[in-house]
Write a protein that binds this DNA or RNA. Structure first.
Lengths: 259, 259
DNA sequence: CTCGGAAGTTGAACGTGTTCGACACGGCGG
DNA sequence: CCGCCGTGTCGAACACGTTCAACTTCCGAG
């Protein structure tokens, strides 16, 4: 109903049953490449230290920004030695991977509200997108400074990387659900590919959001509200005879380009 | 004619007369903000030293990659002190701005070939896009390593930053020329905005190119060849009565979002 | 010719992320 | 009880980008 936000879930953890992916995303510590990823705690004490360092780091990131937060400061604030942080986290960047996971869980929780009640495709999509922005809003400044890290193709933090795969798939699942749970009639050929395309559009929204300097990122909200009807109309039009070849061309191109 | 490349210009410097922007892009040393930009050489000796440092840096970047190239290494290889490099270039990142400028000049030279002979819009656009990729191809690996730096919103290297403005405008001018020099009939409302949109699409192509791991970036070529007809068709369709409101919506949205 | 000052140049020093060899803890087999 | 060894912890040390106060070069006004 509102033009903007989706309220946060009362309990983010309890909202996971909505998606088919479930808890797989939040708890995948083992990296694809065994190198430089930091050790996994075995003891209870280790678990505690790890959590202490992580919480301290994320708090400082949000308070002072990513670049302004020193690993030494994190260590000092957490009351441990610098080397200890590197025992659990392969690098400063690796601390951010946790941030992704946390963000996804909250996004899922917020999106569940809309997905449970609404049936109109455009409205569902709008809800999921706004929910994503809602989730990230408190970290806007912080996100902008570390965004560059995620952009590097070879970085494990890249949304396209193998290391981000679980989180990415879970995120795509959100858009799949927005589609399948709706009353929208879609070209069957398009139906399978669309969720990934919507996720891609979401990445575009995030890209815009990161650069958005308007107060409270109002423009990003306008982007969402403006682009959703367009997508909705386009998806509807895709079944028209006239546009059939275009649809087919687009799908063909996408299949070719998928890496 | 060819499916791919546009041959390099015999003399990159001589091809500038094609655009309306002319030499403004290559020689705009003064930054919008006076801070941290490095000094401008006044004497001939200074000019020489600056060029020496820049050439050495770009060579090492291409040879070893951006991150692997130390400022100390650049200085040593150029036979000067570290501080000297910082006298001319505000930071390591500022060395890349120069790379942008060089790339633009060569892009312009390559594109001029197609723009001088072809009149079909799609073909002109295709030519400009391929020319851009041709220009960057030798630096593909290097580009991937520094790309993350350019992605950060606050970085002067961001293609959207004020500091990149001259280069960006010159680049947009290329697409404006691709349009105005063609026989394409475009919705007059769209005509003014389209070049910037095409440039945005070009940024998208570059984004894909940076991530493209296929041999010789074949997929990026496929992306261009596939997406150009789509754009061409869309532009043509924009004049249709049925799509008029959509066109208007898109334009309205874009005007709102322009920062 | 002289010499003042702008332009150019130097390299040590600072704060950063990260590494690494050494040390402390704690439970378990003997 | 002892010694062992894997887990956890430490902090000095390294290489990096960057800064800056001091120095050198050299042109042109007097």
């Amino acid at each position: 109903m509102t033009d903007r936000s989706v309220p946060p879930p009362a309990d983010a953890g309890g909202a996971a049953e909505q998606t088919g992916v479930g808890g797989a995303a939040g708890a995948e510590p083992v990296t694809a490449r065994g190198e430089a990823a930091g050790a996994e705690p075995v003891t209870a004490r280790g678990e505690q230290t790890r959590k202490l360092i992580l919480d301290t780091a994320l708090r400082l990131f949000r308070e002072r920004g990513y670049a302004q937060t020193t690993m030494r400061a994190v260590a000092k604030e957490a009351g441990v030695a610098v080397g200890n942080a590197y025992y659990y986290f392969g690098s400063k960047e690796h601390l951010i991977q946790e941030f992704y996971a946390e963000t996804l869980v909250e996004h899922r929780g917020r999106a569940a509200r809309v997905l449970a009640t609404e049936t109109d495709f455009a409205e569902r999509l709008r809800g999921v997108l706004h929910a994503g922005v809602d989730t990230m809003t408190p970290s806007h400044e912080f996100a902008a400074t570390f965004f560059k890290t995620a952009a590097e193709p070879t970085s494990p933090l890249s949304p396209f990387s193998a290391e981000s795969s679980p989180t990415r798939e879970a995120s795509i699942a959100l858009f799949r659900e927005a589609l399948t749970g709706s009353t929208a009639k879609v070209d069957p050929e398009l139906r399978d590919e669309l969720p990934e395309l919507l996720w891609l559009a979401y990445m575009g929204v995030i890209l815009y959001w990161v650069y958005d300097r308007s107060a409270d990122q109002t423009k990003t909200r306008a982007l969402i509200n403006g682009v959703v009807p367009l997508i909705d109309r386009l998806v509807g039009l895709s079944r028209l005879r006239v546009l059939r070849p275009v649809t087919r061309d687009v799908l063909g191109l996408i299949r070719t380009l998928r890496q």
